[in-house]
Design a protein around this nucleic acid. Sequence first.
DNA 1: TGAACATATGAGCAATTATTCATATGATAA
DNA 2: TTATCATATGAATAATTGCTCATATGTTCA
Lengths: 109, 109
Amino acid sequence: MPHNHDALLEHVKADMPADELLQDLGDLFKIFGDTTRIKIMYALYEDEMCVCAIADLLGMTQSAISHQLKVLKAANLVESRREGKTIYYRLADEHVKSIIAQGYEHLTE
Amino acid sequence: MPHNHDALLEHVKADMPADELLQDLGDLFKIFGDTTRIKIMYALYEDEMCVCAIADLLGMTQSAISHQLKVLKAANLVESRREGKTIYYRLADEHVKSIIAQGYEHLTE
DNA sequence: TGAACATATGAGCAATTATTCATATGATAA
DNA sequence: TTATCATATGAATAATTGCTCATATGTTCA
């Protein structure tokens, strides 16, 4: 017979967050899981930047950057302000930096 | 004429990590960007577990779990030990927990 | 109003990837 | 050895997704 671990399962299951939260967590990290978006967040690490500056920096299309900024904004990872024709983006909160910093540590330790 | 931001770009570029590291960072977070893997890591949050227990817990195939454990192990996010026929997996280091914790905070704050 | 600049967006394509299915490997006990 | 349990793995499929291209929206200035 296959071995039994009902007791363990019950215990672990009780400590697991709700499925919806786990899904949201996965969705959040999925956003960090793209080099372009990581680069954008790093570009905004110290100061705000306009879309075309980011595009220039990464050597990518304005369209591509705009699409990614939309994704980042939908996840509350960046915020923006308009100044004339230009729109400046900045990181939304400190979690962005600390998540990236933790990943960085895991890689470089 | 389009507006110029060469000075800014030069400054930001100097502070950006190497392209290879940025790629690795993206690849690392990509691994966190899947609900199944998030669930596995949460299951291992407090203690080690064997493959079939994880499969039972998540209501998924042993094969599916094995595939994902392989991904997690390749990224040094989990480690394993054998005990007879059974193989127990555990989290590899504290970064796993802190990365997840930061994501959790971002969502629930 | 019209022209130029800055950004946003919808559709389509190409590439990635999570799961399934079948099967292989490894270990134990009879 | 043979049977069974535990895990790993290769191939195939289905779904997701990042970029491009064309175009739309919004702003400023002449």
